[in-house]
Design a protein around this nucleic acid. Structure first.
Length: 460
RNA sequence: UCCCCAGUAGCUCAGUCGGUAGAGCAGGUGGCUGUUAACCACCUUGUCCGUGGUUCGAGUCCGCGCUGGGGAGCCA
């Protein structure tokens, strides 16, 4: 007769419902006549107020419960006579499942994000991280739904790879060779003796493999872990992060931008519609303007600006930048933010960059000096999506590789895709954690991934 | 990797001009209360990051190191 339900259902159930909830005590307040326990099981932002009276056999034990204790409560949902909650649980029985003493590191007070990072195994029990990881899960599922509804194939590109996507980032080595005495040939490590018979590492991008699948399934996407061994010590970089990379066949840069815009707006709408309790918390306690900012992006149509035009805008800007502005140079964060925040005052695609500052696989434009690349810039962060139309013409691709000094032998399979049945195709990449930062207002990437991996940090 | 800032009780922080430390929370005891990160009274808690130096004397000043943070670059 006591059905175990989650706190989320208990809070939504009608009066006089008999049920059981199990969870962790957030706070325990005790008096002579009554004790209150705020019980949370992670199912939603709110906690259920459990009310226990001295008639319970273990009332003393309940009063000594420490913050963080795991308990099971059977009782009736009743309307709450006090302000603060609509209903509460009148306890008929409180079972202590896992007690928690005063050495429990999470207290009924504000902690710094830095401290909580040192207890990454316990921080999901806090308000902030509960909200972050509910939104993370919800968004991940929304991403799959978005692509699924549009007929995109979900591809699992390899985690271990022999290609480094030609400069997308520093590779983590994967090897079974003994590090203290690797086999040598002419003073160099002999990777032919390694597990895979060649040098391998963890993937820095699934794009090249993704393209191969787009040239069979038309529209595909990848959504998986990505690894970069860069010594980056910033709030926006992690050595292990998750990336979403759609790729469409028979598509050009305009199609690519349309998809990116639709995708980004879909995700903004998703958190506004489906995560309002958690988002309200972020808006109140983490980032005051969050909901307004996300709503504006959800409602706006994105602008588009040529790189050449962007350089013009930057050159006539009434402010001075610390990095130079010149046609042919890459845009810095300060430039990107000026364009999206001051010039456009909203999301903007910058398209057609000089080929020298972009990757070899991007499609050359007819002007011979730019490629069909696009970056989506949004207020407060700058670039959030980067993509391009790919070079589908074999001769031009080979020429670009030679220019860029890239050895084609290891990429024979990539070049093959341009040999038979090649077609225009385009795609983009979105860092999942950066998306989460944007949609939650959390300012450090280490606080939107459960157990962050950054230089010198691989604990937990 | 570069540039800045910080490190004091379990946590969040204060600490004046250089004279070996204090508040809130947490914890303990008692009280009170249909409470809302409850409240009131009393009590407990320190390798002042480490190391070397200056000084009669260093939490405080200086050097080096470690750790953390912010910014930049690389990038998603």
């Amino acid at each position: 007769m006591y059905k175990r339900v989650r706190v989320k259902q208990a809070l939504a159930s009608g009066p006089e419902t008999a049920l059981e909830v199990r969870g962790w005590a957030r706070t325990v307040r005790c008096g002579k006549e009554v004790a209150f326990i705020a019980l949370n099981d992670g199912s939603c932002f709110g906690s259920l107020q459990v009310v226990a009276g001295p008639s319970l056999a273990n009332f003393d034990e309940i009063c000594r419960l420490g913050t963080g204790s795991a308990i099971a409560v059977r009782g009736r949902v009743v309307p709450s006579p006090a302000a603060g909650q609509a209903v509460e649980l009148a306890a008929g029985e409180v079972r202590v499942i896992g007690p928690s003493d005063d050495s429990y590191p999470l207290q009924k007070k504000r902690h710094t994000m830095e401290y909580l990072r040192t207890i990454a195994h316990l921080r999901p029990r806090t308000n902030t991280f509960g909200a972050v990881f509910r939104v993370r899960s919800s968004l991940a599922q929304a991403i799959h739904r978005f692509f699924s509804e549009r007929g995109f194939l979900y591809v699992h590109t390899p985690i271990i790879t022999g290609n480094d996507c030609e400069g997308a980032g520093e590779l983590f080595r994967v090897t079974t060779l003994p590090l203290d005495k690797p086999p040598l040939v002419g003073g160099q490590v002999d990777y032919s003796a390694d597990f895979f018979g060649q040098a391998t590492g963890l993937t820095v991008s699934g794009q090249l493999e993704g393209e191969l699948y787009a040239l069979a399934f038309s529209d595909i996407y990848t959504f998986g872990p990505t690894f970069r061994a860069e010594n980056s010590n910033t709030s926006r970089h992690a050595a292990e992060f998750w990336m979403i990379e759609p790729e469409m066949a028979f598509a050009d840069l305009q199609d690519d931008a349309r998809l990116a815009e639709e995708f980004f707006r879909f995700l903004c709408c998703h958190v506004l519609d489906e995560c309002h309790d958690d988002l309200a918390f972020f808006n109140d306690h983490i980032d005051k303007g969050l909901i307004e900012r996300v709503r504006q992006v959800a409602d706006s149509s994105f602008a588009m600006m040529e790189y050449t035009e962007a350089i013009h805008e930057l050159k006539k800007a009434p402010i001075s930048f610390s990095f130079p502005v010149e046609w042919g140079l890459d845009l810095q964060s300060e430039h990107e933010r000026y364009l999206t925040e001051q010039v456009v005052q909203g999301p903007v695609f910058i398209v057609n960059y000089p080929k020298e500052i972009k990757a070899f696989y991007m499609r050359q434009n007819n002007d011979n000096r730019t490629v069909a690349a696009m970056d989506l810039l949004v207020p407060k962060v700058g670039e959030i999506i980067g993509g391009s139309q790919r070079e589908e013409r074999l001769d031009l691709l080979e020429a670009r590789m030679a220019e860029a000094g890239i050895d084609p032998t290891g990429l024979w399979w990539y070049l093959d895709s341009r040999r038979w049945g090649s077609c225009p195709h385009a795609g983009f990449g979105l860092g999942f954690e950066r998306l989460l930062m944007y949609l939650t207002g959390m300012e450090n990437i280490r606080d939107v991934i459960p157990f962050p991996r950054t230089p010198r940090h691989a604990e937990f």
